[in-house]
């Protein structure tokens, strides 16, 4: 398949007329991720928004083979695919598991930790839309503090977001990366790299969600950019323990000035009840983590 001026495949693996919402951040990220992974990939996905995007029986919107699995079992399903393909001497296939934050941070963490500890040769992709969006925006452990969800409908989420990236790093993985659909080239590059590495690779997608976060579909790319500009979400990769900021985050660390977190909060309906104290605390925690990242990158 020919590449264009972005050096990205022209081939679309996601067919038009799928069920993803208008302006879906996952859809944009997934589109470029699949371009980087290419057709010699087998996917496994649990119940999630992605199940909906992949389509309802008997038609699928994605031209990559995919095995649906139960919510808690994503990484184990990938382990089974890897073992089965190896037993059959099919060694040229990349096994990729893709789960939401619920399927990663919450119900999927046991199987993920097990597969990572076993060094299973696969890529685990978490698309983090910070809640149970497919079931109607319930709180997950990835929901940020101050966000309204349908299960934190009055007081907002009180607890900080779980740092899944640190948890995955503690498994000693050969490759960890964060990506955001507002930066498709950075995303494409990281998926291409992840594909070339052996062992368990973890890629976390920041996936803005218009209906769940309360902003207009046209603003998905802008919200993603704001997340990076504020440092709410940081673009980096960790290769065999070597930490590196990438793309816009790298530029920001060198010379830029981060935008205040309040700009990010104001742009989304889910933060309309956040208290000044919560917002202030969030800004401090973003600052603290940013300093930590910059310090690591500087080493």
């Amino acid at each position: 398949m020919t590449d264009n001026l972005f050096k990205i495949s022209e081939r679309e693996y996601i067919l038009p007329g799928n069920r993803a919402c208008q302006g879906c951040g996952l859809s944009l990220a997934y589109r470029h991720a699949l371009k980087a992974l290419g057709e010699n990939t087998i996917l496994t996905i649990p119940a999630s928004c992605l199940t909906v995007l992949h389509g309802l029986y008997p038609i699928t919107s994605v031209e990559i083979p995919c095995l649906n699995c139960t919510f808690a079992s994503t990484a184990a399903s990938a382990s089974g695919l890897v073992a089965g393909l190896k037993a059959l001497n099919r060694n040229d296939v990349t096994v990729v598991a893709v789960a939401g934050d619920g399927g990663t941070y919450d119900i999927g963490i046991q199987a993920l930790s097990g597969a990572a500890e076993r060094g299973t040769d696969f890529i685990f992709v978490c698309y983090d839309n910070e809640g149970y969006m497919n079931t109607g925006t319930q709180r997950s452990s990835a929901t940020p503090p101050g966000a309204l969800t349908t299960t934190t409908p009055v007081l907002t989420k009180q607890e900080p977001k779980k740092d899944m990236l640190k948890i995955m790093e503690a498994h000693g993985l050969p490759y960890i990366a964060t990506v955001c659909p507002s930066y498709p080239l950075d995303l494409h590059e990281k998926f291409t790299k992840a594909k070339s590495v052996q062992g368990t690779r973890y890629v976390q997608i920041y996936a803005p969600c218009p209906p769940g976060w309360g902003y207009l579909p046209k603003d998905t790319v802008k919200i993603g950019r704001l997340a990076v500009e504020t440092g709410i979400f940081v673009l980096f990769e960790i290769e065999d323990g070597r930490f590196r900021l990438t793309g816009r985050s790298r530029v920001l660390a060198k010379k830029g000035k981060r935008v205040p977190v309040s700009d990010y909060l104001k742009a989304q309906g889910r933060f309309r009840q956040i208290s000044p104290e919560q917002a202030e605390k969030l800004q401090r925690s973003v600052d603290g983590r940013w300093d930590e990242y910059v310090k690591r990158a500087g080493k």
Binding site: G17, G55, T60, S61
Partner: peptide
């Protein structure tokens, strides 16, 4: 003749969106 649910790819799974 399918004994389990296997989908083939096609555009417009959700119709003309």
């Amino acid at each position: 003749n399918n004994i389990s649910a296997m989908c083939k790819p096609a555009p417009g799974e959700a119709g003309k969106t």
